Amino acid sequence: MLDTLADRLVAPGYSKWGYRLRRRSWPADDPKPGALRAGLAVVTGAGTGIGKATALGLARLGSAVVLVVRDQAKGAAARDEIVAAVPDAVVQVRLCDLSGPESVRRFAGEMVAEFDRLDVLVHNAGVLPQKRTETPEGHELTLATHVLGPLLLTDLLRPLLAASPDARVVFVSSGGMYTQRLHADDPEYREGEYRGATAYARTKRMQVALAPLMAARYASDGIAVHAMHPGWADTPGVAGSLPGFHRLTKAFLRTSEEGADTVVWLAATSPAPRSGQFWHDRRERPAHVLPSTRENPGDVTKFWTRAKSAAGLPD
C-alpha cells in the first residue's frame, strides 16, 4: 500500500527516497551473480547517464556489452569507466544514430554478421529538441529516435534475439508519459504548438503502448519485451535538456545507477518477468493514472499500423 501511494503521489515514488525505501525489500530479489555470464547485451545511448549505468550493471553480471552511441569519444570514455570498474568486462563501442534508418540498418548488419545470438537489447537512446526538427526521411526527431529506430532495430536483430534461450528487450520510458495520451492521428506532432518536453513525453507514451504489441509479435521466438521508467535521475540529459527541473529537484534526484536498477533487473532476474508490462522499481505499474490518457483499441491499432509502416517493418 505504501509503495502504491508513493507511486501515485509521484514525488515520493520517483525520487531517490522512493528507490531507497523500496530497495530495503529487494536483496532476495537481486539477479544472481554471474546471471548474464557468456551473454551479450546491446545498450543504446550508452555513453552517459542511465545507458552507461545500465551497461555497467550488465557487465557486472557477466555480460559482454555493446555500447551504441552517436559520439565515439563519449563511447570510448564510457567503455574505459566500465572496464576500470569490471576489469574482465568485454565492452565494445559502436556508432549508430537511432533516428536514421540507414544507420540502424548498417549497425544491425554488423551485429548479425559478427554474432550468433543476442540476449539483451536495451532501448535507452533519447533526444529532447527545443524546436520541431525533422530527419532527412521527414519524421519528427523524437518519434524517429524513441519509436521508429527502436522498432526497426529490434526487427533487424530478431534472428539474434531468437537464438537466445531467454532474450529480453527493454524500453527505457519516462514517468512523464503519464501526462500524455497516445496521439494516433498526429504521431509526427504537426498540429498545435510544439514543445520539446511534450514531444518527449508523447513518444514515451508510444513506447509503453507498443510494448504489449511487440511482446505479441515476438512471443513465438521466445523474445520478451518490457517497458519501464527510471524515476527522476540526475543525468547529463536531464541537466542539459530540463535545466529548470534539474535545478528545482536536484536534491531529490536518483543517481544514474538507481535509475538503471530496474533495467538491469528486467534483463537478468529469474524467473523472467511477464512480457509486455510496464515497470518501475521492480514492480508492474499501471500504464495510465489519468482517465484522459486512456486510449481505445482502435487508436492503438491505428498507431501500430502507422509506426510499422514508417519504420519499414513487414507485417
Rank of each mutant, 00 (worst) to 15 (best):
G39D: 08
L290W: 12
R106H: 15
R205C: 07
A184V: 05
R285S: 01
D185G: 08
S241D: 12
M214E: 10
D155I: 00
G138K: 07
V93H: 05
Q130I: 12
G149S: 08
L67Q: 02
R158M: 04
L253C: 04
G13T: 06
K52E: 15
S25E: 13
R158Q: 13
Q130C: 11
I223R: 03
D80M: 11
W17D: 12
A162C: 10
A89G: 08
A125Q: 00
M228W: 04
I50K: 00
G100F: 05
T269R: 12
A311D: 01
D80Q: 14
V238Y: 02
L266T: 00
P27G: 13
G126Y: 01
A38S: 14
P165T: 09
V91Y: 02
R195P: 01
V169I: 12
Y200V: 02
D97W: 07
A73K: 14
G62V: 08
L153Y: 04
L253P: 05
Q72E: 15
Q277V: 06
V65D: 01
A201Y: 11
S25R: 14
A6W: 00
P165R: 11
T145I: 07
T293V: 11
A6N: 12
A251F: 15
P33W: 14
A311G: 12
V10Y: 11
E102S: 13
A215T: 09
L290F: 14
R254N: 04
K16F: 09
F107Q: 03
L128E: 09
A125W: 02
R158A: 07
A41L: 04
L143A: 10
L290I: 00
R60A: 10
T4F: 12
Q180R: 14
Y189S: 11
T154H: 12
V170S: 04
V147W: 01
G47A: 06
Y194C: 08
A41D: 05
R106E: 15
D80K: 11
R285A: 01
L58C: 05
M111H: 10
H226K: 03
V122Q: 05
A227V: 05
G34F: 13
L248T: 08
L128W: 00
P230I: 02
Q130N: 14
R94K: 15
R205Q: 06
